[in-house]
């Protein structure tokens, strides 16, 4: 059984910014007809348990922390970008997810 696909939206407090991104991504995934990816939002201080999790793309609503080691996407355009930019970022996340997906 493969680890379920997860998009983890990260911001400072896990209250507003990452939550906003999560809601946009969920909406856009539905439009793209993708229904096998879970989306969560989280505070940056609580990332510990997600380190080395498989089949996960980290969407940073802040500076990307390369040292965390997960496949990462910069997601601030979910807040500041046009509709087109939001769709493009979502597509980028989906493509990255498909690229890293492993079944073991």
């Amino acid at each position: 059984m493969a680890t379920p696909k997860l998009i983890l939206c990260i911001c400072g407090a896990g209250i507003n910014t990452s939550n906003n991104a999560k809601m946009k991504i969920l909406e856009l995934l539905e439009k793209e007809g993708v229904n096998d990816i879970d989306v969560k939002h989280i505070m940056i201080g609580d990332l510990g348990p997600y380190k080395n999790r498989k089949n996960m793309v980290a969407v940073w609503m802040t500076k990307v922390d390369e040292s965390f080691g997960s496949p990462s996407v910069q997601g601030i355009s979910f807040l500041t970008g046009s509709k087109k930019a939001k769709i493009e970022t979502t597509k980028k996340i989906i493509a990255l997810m498909n690229e890293i997906y492993t079944n073991d």
Binding site: I10, C11, G12, A13, G14, I15, N16, T17, S18, I44, G45, W60, M61, T62, K63, V64, D65, S67, I76, L79, T80
Partner: peptide, 16 residues
């Protein structure tokens, strides 16, 4: 400039 919440400023490793 588009206003965002200060949660966007917490990514630098020095912050946490």
């Amino acid at each position: 400039y588009v206003a965002v919440d200060c949660a966007a400023l917490l990514g630098h490793p020095s912050v946490m």
